[in-house]
């Protein structure tokens, strides 16, 4: 019972109930995000002590910006994983949005605001295309998005011939390069996006239905929910968030590089899953997505700050991820033993 409860999304009332029943510290153990959060805190302490550069304003700004960039990519993936699917074309949709933004600003001379709207619409359309193939034609999401990964990447290269768009106005880079209260605008945008995810899955019927679809598609269908529409919408949202990530990369780079998005796939899965999004569907956490992003960025940042051997970098990265996941397993073990 406890294990079952631990493995699924907790409702707000359940969280409140836990808190009242067992107290604050023990109630922390109930939450799947607690393990990853503890791991993040440990890493923060280790890197702060080991490197004097870690807590500098420049590095904090840098880390916060990278966390935000990863979080948007992870949200795009998590939104379909939670419904029991996957989106292999996340990076390709991001690349499409990058090129769309660059093309309409640089070649067509549109204002950045209009170019961004078009790019976001392209992301929505690409997500809808994925959703329609999956729900109407009945093709598995892995196969469907693998195919569209090639389609979208081909469009990107067909339009750009591999060349970047470089005439992006300086004003457009403000979001990607500047900040407020010591943290980048990207970070605050990420907070808003994660707030949206929290709200969607805790207070909106669509979010609960998507969770239910990920838990058991057939059971949800039998209860009268239009499962196909839910899956279609999750892909539309995934496309939108991938496009937002792409547009924000243009703002950060000050140019539209056609290769953007090519390495998003692994990272999108890694962060979503480390952050507690169940690969089998039915579970997602805004805090988990944040912590998943933080831990990946912290590890990469810390390894360079500590000057580890570049040829063993991936080994260290893998080992620390394993350590973080182990901390979560320890949390789950104590949670079960405590009999909460």
């Amino acid at each position: 019972m406890h294990v079952k409860k631990h493995n699924r999304q907790l409702t707000l009332s359940e969280r409140r109930e836990d808190f009242v029943k067992v107290g604050f510290l023990k109630s922390l153990l109930v939450h799947p995000e607690a393990g990853i959060t503890i791991a993040v805190v440990i890493l923060l302490i280790v890197f702060s002590v080991a490197s004097p550069s870690f807590l500098t304003a420049y590095n904090i700004f840098n880390v916060a910006r990278n966390v935000a960039s990863y979080a948007f990519i992870a949200i795009a993936q998590a939104l379909v994983i939670v419904g029991g699917g996957m989106n292999l074309s996340v990076g390709a949709i991001g690349g499409l949005a990058v090129v769309t933004t660059g093309y309409f600003i640089d070649v067509q001379g549109f204002s950045p605001a209009i170019a961004v709207i078009i790019a976001l619409l392209v992301g929505l359309a690409a997500g809808a295309f994925n959703g329609v193939i999956i729900t109407k034609i009945g093709i598995n999401s892995f196969v469907a998005t693998l195919a569209t990964l090639f389609v979208f990447t081909g469009i990107v290269y067909g339009i750009t011939k591999g060349y970047p768009y470089i005439n992006i106005p300086k004003s457009f880079t403000i979001i990607g390069r500047k900040g407020i209260w010591g943290l980048p605008y990207l970070f605050w945008l990420m907070v808003v996006a994660l707030g949206f995810i929290f709200y969607l899955f805790n207070f909106r019927r669509f979010g609960r239905w998507l969770l239910a679809t990920g838990g058991s598609k057939e059971a949800t269908r039998v209860s009268g929910v239009n499962v196909d529409r839910i899956i279609l919408l999750s892909h539309v949202l995934s496309g939108l968030f991938a496009a937002i990530a792409g547009v924000l990369w243009v703002s950060r780079m000050g140019s539209a590089q056609p290769a953007t998005g090519q390495d998003w796939l692994i990272i999108s899965f890694a962060i979503a899953i480390i952050g507690g999004t169940a690969l089998s569907g039915g579970s997602i956490s805004a805090l988990g997505l944040l912590m998943g992003s933080v831990i990946i960025v912290l590890i990469r940042n810390g390894l360079i700050l500590l000057g580890v051997n570049i040829y063993f970098e991936q080994t260290y990265l893998g080992l620390i991820i394993l350590l973080a996941v182990t901390v979560d397993r320890i949390r789950a073990f104590y949670y079960q033993r405590a009999g909460i």
Binding site: S53, Q257, D263, I304, I310
Partner: peptide, 25 residues
């Protein structure tokens, strides 16, 4: 005084180079 490597994309390169600058600015 510093080396970064194993970079396959512009995004990854930006992150690693900025981390290296932050370490020894």
């Amino acid at each position: 005084i510093g080396e970064v490597a194993d970079i396959k994309s512009v995004e990854e390169g930006m992150e690693k180079i900025q981390n290296a600058l932050a370490a020894q600015i």
